[in-house]
Amino acid sequence: MAATEPTIDRDSFGRVIAVESLKGGVGKTTITANIGGYLALSGARVLLVDLDPQGNLEDDLGYADDERNDQGESLAKALMFGGEVAAITNVRENLDVWTGGSALHSVTAVLSSKMGSDAKNAKLALAKILAPVVDNYDFIFLDCPPGDGVLQLAALAAARWVLVPTRTGAKDIKGVAKVAERIDQVLDVNGAIDLLGVVLFAVGTASERKDGTVVMKNAERDARADLDAMFGVGEEGGIGREIVFNQAIRHSEAVASQSGRAGLLVHELDERAKQEAKAGIAWWKIRSGELKNKQLTSATAGSVADDLQTIAQEINDRLLEAENEVLEGASA
């Protein structure tokens, strides 16, 4: 007897976003945590789903030692056998998390074994367990693993939109095309999926002239041109909209390190820097031993926080534009 194909109400999945790249170190978890955090701060109800067996989302959000953090066991069981996922609720106000971690390693083998005989149901494993809760949230972000093709397919089969972060190197830009190929593999179960855009991550700092014009670094300028050409932006038969986000995320190793160590989102790290400045904490005091066991927060936290906040706004704007187009089409 053939397996029954599940029915997924795609209209309710309109704000499920897969943050996807086949490469590691391109900012997927940073974007998932911080964009989700900003939207939750604005009052939106947000769910973050950590599909990475490394479970790095716990570092950015600071719930590593939370007794509810089961290293992905609840999520893994639901993906393999169905059922509810035990979320960590209120990691921040309005922000819930389905935790990832080492337990997700077992999911790949189980879903892979189903790909031959029941491929559609295997791909829809995540969509099926999201379906009962999707209406509880305004945004759902899926933090995808870099190397696990099976979990990536499950994420893409559940997502309405795909957000692709990338660095500016030529090999990184080629990797964006690989994501497009991976999207093609779920069209049989998710014809609604579309690319929300590409975010440039860890770019050099642009300079600003006295007249207010911004001069990009060569690497960023070239990456934008290459991506526009890849998707045929502005060309006949190509995509008739912008693909690369206007805002890029600036490079700061210090911010990334301090955020993960402290379990703080970047805007929270920036707030800590402001409090330090208000308290008169300075490098010379730390060096002199006056303030022992104290780490001064990077001054670049504010700049990176501004980048992430701008991207959060641009994501919301792009979603609203797409939703308005659907409404206008329905009323025509």
Rank of each mutant, 00 (worst) to 15 (best):
R318E: 09
G43P: 09
D11S: 15
L41C: 02
A262H: 07
V164N: 05
G169C: 03
M216D: 12
K178A: 15
R182C: 03
V107H: 07
S257R: 12
D9H: 09
A177Y: 04
G82Y: 11
V91R: 09
V198T: 11
G24T: 03
K171N: 11
T166Y: 01
A159L: 01
T310Q: 14
D228T: 05
A330C: 02
A44I: 01
A322D: 05
L142G: 06
V266K: 02
Q71H: 15
A3I: 08
Q54F: 01
G260D: 09
M80S: 12
K114A: 14
D9A: 07
L200C: 04
T297V: 15
R182F: 00
Q71W: 08
D70T: 04
E236L: 08
N121W: 03
L265P: 03
L264C: 12
V110W: 00
N56Y: 00
A2W: 01
L111D: 09
Q152K: 10
E73C: 00
G204L: 10
Q247W: 02
K278C: 01
D270S: 10
V46D: 06
W161C: 00
E268G: 08
G302P: 11
G25C: 07
L153N: 13
A157L: 04
E290W: 06
A282W: 01
V304A: 01
G101L: 05
D11T: 13
A180R: 08
A248G: 05
T32L: 01
E84R: 07
A202R: 13
A87W: 07
E314G: 03
E73H: 07
A122F: 07
A277M: 11
G175V: 05
L79G: 09
L195W: 04
A305F: 05
A180K: 08
E20S: 08
H105S: 12
D52M: 11
A282T: 15
N69A: 12
V266F: 09
W284M: 11
V214P: 03
I88F: 04
V85H: 08
V91S: 14
V97W: 05
E328K: 06
V107T: 10
V244G: 08
L195S: 11
E253F: 04
A78W: 06
A202W: 00
D135K: 10
A76W: 06
L265K: 07
V85M: 08
D307I: 01
G329I: 03
V199S: 10
I183N: 01
T29N: 10
E253R: 06
F245N: 08
R224D: 10
P53N: 06
R287D: 14
T166M: 03
